[in-house]
Amino acid sequence: MIRIGREGGRKSVFAGYHPLLNFMFFGYAVSVPIFFLHPLLLIISLASALAYSIYLGGRKAALFGLGFVLPVMLLAAAFNPLFFHRGETIIYYFYYNPITLESIIYGLCNATMIGSVILWFTCYNAIMTSDKFIYLFGRLVPAMSLIIAMALRLIPRYQAQVQRIVAARRGIGFDVSTGGYLTRVRNGGEVLSVMVTWALENGIETGDSMLARGYGLPGRTAYSNYRFDSRDRLLLASFLGLMTTDLFCLVTGTLSVQYYSRFMWENIQPFASIALVCHAAVSFLPLALELREDALWRSLRSRI
């Protein structure tokens, strides 16, 4: 996986919305392609995921798409026809195993699904930072989210502490960068040993400090950096409207597709096209918000 984020310091607009909306969007975006394996739906998902991840990550995301997602998709597309031989249109015999058109189509659809899920997750990693996750689930699993928050904070702290231990040991003549190979390994091991002991002792001290400040008492409040403002309300309303319409149309089966034993693709009825339009609207909404903000930014700047 890669880390993607806006270059040039400007933050993503969608990331500025309430964490609930971020989470809701990604929950929808990831689960719809998994649940409803319809070719058109999948193409919309893949296109929007690719567009948004490239918008968020730039060239790095495009390279990730080419170098990781595409091979995985090809592998997935090849996997299906090689191991599944259902379907009535046999086009080739591969070592006495029939390769059917239906399983090729199914493999392609499945590959599209996998590609869009992976790409959505790259966007998720850029938007849903750990603090947002902890904010959302802190009430539900307070102890565990506290552990997550503490562990995330401790990792950079340990990196800094290792530097200090190395410096201190250099001062008393145990430099990790000089001496023979074995000496250096031994000195490096000592650094880690000191590090772990320090980490545990320091942790106990932190725990005692927490206790002294009243951890575990009733009436605990949580720091929160998020508030649900009118902008969030508007987006929530549009998400809810579009998503429920879409899910209603999908669940009632207007957009059904049959892969075996013969690929059958239902005619686009009015309901089905509503489902597709809603799905596209939701999937492209964050990107649209970003682009609108960019346009606004450019127009304001040119006026100055």
Binding site: M150, V196, G207
Partner: peptide, 30 residues
């Protein structure tokens, strides 16, 4: 597992020791 862990209201010291081990493990993976 989560319910059992949350349900018994772990002490601050225990939480911190677990967090330290998680952080060391993650640092090891990175």
């Amino acid at each position: 597992f989560a319910l059992v862990f949350e349900g018994r209201k772990p002490q601050a010291r225990e939480l911190v020791v677990i967090a330290v081990l998680v952080a060391l493990t993650v640092a090891g993976r990175t």
